[in-house]
Design a binder for these strands. Structure first.
Lengths: 195, 195
DNA sequence: GTTTCGACTATTATCGTATTTTGGTCGGCA
DNA sequence: TGCCGACCAAAATACGATAATAGTCGAAAC
């Protein structure tokens, strides 16, 4: 078994699964459907994944990766902490709505045990870390001085959780809470040194 | 029917109902149980309330009122916008955990149609308004200048939604996310003029 | 040896129906 | 006017039968 061949087949499976999960959700998508969608027998899937959950998990990882690549790319184009955060919120919010499966997790629509516990807090942890690095960079550059360095971990967590709360809210209202408004959040979440 | 007598009986009912709802939740509490808990017949309850929902709604109103009185009392004791907001977050958070029924609403644990639609957004609206007044007062006193006055409505909404997201998070982790941390949120949510 | 498949199993979900629970009504009693 | 027990209709529950589905296994194909 070549590793490359292996991952090609895995990609086929994930692509089909992603579409089906997006359309019907985790519960209403069967392994048989995924299998025939990519022209394989169900038992073949179990050669590459040991469970349905593992397939779903991989789909999520793919979506998350896509979102993160985009977020990171956009954020890197901005120079100041303020602009970076603004772009971060905007891109994350927009992409989370596109990646429907991911969005379902954020909304905690899927109540599977294995997901809520791990996945959601994984996202929070990862994003907290990402934001933390942004803030630390801001500190190093002197853009962000009025916060003790030891508090930056907590600050990041607060920012992420608060932001995700807003994403959820915005999603539940389905457009009532506009993206333009979301842009102003940075002004709230980040105390500026130069006022 | 005297109005006073009427409200005495209503209070008896609400007290019993509150305990039961707190212990078993909305769905697992029956009208018969509430009735016998306050030594009345079920049909008597319908003399004072026209439905179970109305009873639950009144319990919520009572809890909300209690919380709001305390919040308002504590907030009024503080002078600056910063201290007021700090106290606001702290008291609201603490009391929301005590008032279990209210807390279930915030957590959106109760999925009854009549609740999610009205109650939750009622809370958001009320709190948004309350915070807005705080901010406007801060503007008037010159403590809070770096925000356009027309944006204050949006700011308030963002603050409330973000804060409720944090309350939920803190509740889900059941103590992991400490109240002391919550106190620092004000520093994040309110850009200070004097840095 | 690796990948695929069809047949098989065990578990879970679904359905139809009988039964119970429960929200809500009503007439009458104090 | 305030209260109750008896009553009803609708919803929840229980349960057995049936169907759907996640996951296994041995063998065939490559």
């Amino acid at each position: 078994m070549e590793a490359s061949k292996d991952s090609v087949v895995k990609n086929e499976i994930i692509d089909s699964a992603q579409k089906l999960f997006k359309q019907f959700g985790l519960k209403k998508t069967t392994m048989d459907e995924i299998a025939s969608a990519c022209g394989k027998a169900k038992s073949t899937l179990y050669h590459y994944y040991k469970s349905k959950e593992e397939v779903f998990d991989d789909v999520l990882s793919k979506e998350m990766l896509g979102l993160r690549i985009l977020v990171d790319k956009n954020v890197k184009q901005k120079k100041t902490l303020h602009d970076k955060l603004k772009m971060y919120f905007e891109t994350f919010h927009k992409e989370a709505l596109n990646k429907l499966n991911l969005y379902r997790i954020l909304k905690q629509e899927i109540q599977a045990e294995f997901i809520n516990t791990n996945r959601f807090s994984d996202v929070i942890m990862f994003e907290t870390n990402y934001v933390q690095n942004m803030l630390l960079e801001g500190v190093k550059k002197g853009e962000f001085t009025n916060v003790k360095e030891e508090d930056i971990g907590l600050y990041s967590e607060v920012i992420v959780v608060a932001f995700l709360g807003l994403v959820r809210y915005s999603v539940e209202r389905d457009g009532e809470f506009e993206i333009e408004n979301l842009r102003k959040i940075t002004d709230i979440l980040i105390p500026r040194v130069f006022t």
